[in-house]
């Protein structure tokens, strides 16, 4: 089995045309699997479900596997109705990003994927969900190689493992919109400020350490998580898919770099290329069993 690459859902709020152009490029990219949909904020409606379905069909014609991703934090009743529509679609598998989606999909007897912010920390959870239709899970981003190794050994048959391999880390979700708050606006009247921050809005400490990024109700790492140098180990552990989370620029190139890493090209050269197109700096601490913001080689216990 060769390892596949996936393109995760766009976490940010981009202009509609930008989204359409992005997926046109993605159609010819190194991605094998493409996740589509709004996962952060239900007020972002420049691209609607019908659009996502249309984009998905085109991508499928280009040979891509398409998955629809669901909202991560559900609060309003309207968000539940949107979720129900996504889960009821008969074209594509759904990535469940919260337990409501898992319940809807498993009750309907449909297969599903769980996303990076869905908590699966042990084999018993994995086995239980596999019995409910789980076909693929993304390792929660705060877990590292030691736990991944244990879970790979205990993983049920027919379940694929995906690892968040590149992108700013999804760290937290709130009822409050931090981008609106940073403009002194209430969430109800956010004026869609997120559109001005296509890679999120930077939050620094008082001594100018680039620390976090505000993306609406989501908080991300300012540093970009990347696991390029751990790719050989991930292959050894039998990981099926590496996820590339879109950034505003150069995502197709990132896919190309990871694709080259799978073709056994020299990692050091690729790594230099990757660092050049990362907005602020890299981290990989979670995967190597350190603080998430750290960057370094694997620490052995």
């Amino acid at each position: 089995m060769t390892m596949k690459l996936s393109l995760g859902p766009i976490q940010y709020f981009w202009e509609r045309q930008r989204v359409l152009d992005f997926y046109q490029q993605a159609a010819d990219s190194a991605a094998d699997i493409i996740y589509l949909g709004e996962v952060i904020c239900s007020k972002r409606r420049l691209v609607k479900l019908d659009d996502w379905l249309a984009i998905g069909k085109e991508l499928r014609q280009s040979g891509k596997e398409v998955v629809l991703s669901s909202l991560t934090l559900l609060e309003a009743a309207s968000e539940m109705s949107s979720l129900k529509k996504i889960c009821a679609n008969n074209e594509f598998m759904v990535e469940a990003n919260d337990i409501s989606a898992v319940h809807l999909l498993s009750s309907a007897g449909k297969d599903f994927v769980t996303g990076p912010s869905f908590n699966i920390y042990n084999a018993r959870s994995l086995q239980l969900l596999a019995a409910k239709g789980l076909k693929r899970w993304v390792l929660p981003v705060e877990l590292g190689l030691d736990t991944l190794k244990d879970l790979q050994e205990l993983r049920p048959q027919g379940v694929e493992t995906e690892v968040f391999a590149f992108g700013r880390l999804p760290l937290a979700y709130s009822a409050r919109c931090y981008t609106a708050r940073s403009h002194n606006l209430p969430k109800d009247d956010c004026q869609f400020k997120c559109i001005d921050y296509p890679d999120g809005r930077l939050l620094e400490t008082q001594e100018q350490q680039e620390f976090l990024v505000l993306n609406g109700i989501q908080t991300q790492s300012a540093l970009t998580h990347e696991v390029l140098q751990q790719v050989p180990e991930l292959i050894t552990l039998g990981v099926d898919i590496l996820r590339i989370s879109p950034q505003f620029n150069d995502t197709i190139q990132v896919l190309e770099i990871f694709n080259n890493s799978l073709l056994n090209n020299e990692l050091n050269d690729l790594y230099d290329n990757l660092l050049e197109i990362i907005p602020l700096g890299a981290c990989n601490g979670y995967l190597v069993e350190q603080a998430g913001m750290d960057h370094g080689p694997r620490q052995t216990a």
Binding site: E142, Y173, S174, R176, L212, G285, E289, A291, D294
Partner: peptide, 16 residues
């Protein structure tokens, strides 16, 4: 807690 509990990783991002 201002973040949804159980899905907030801010602490491990900074400290592990």
């Amino acid at each position: 807690c201002v973040m949804v509990e159980g899905r907030c990783l801010l602490s491990s991002y900074a400290t592990g």
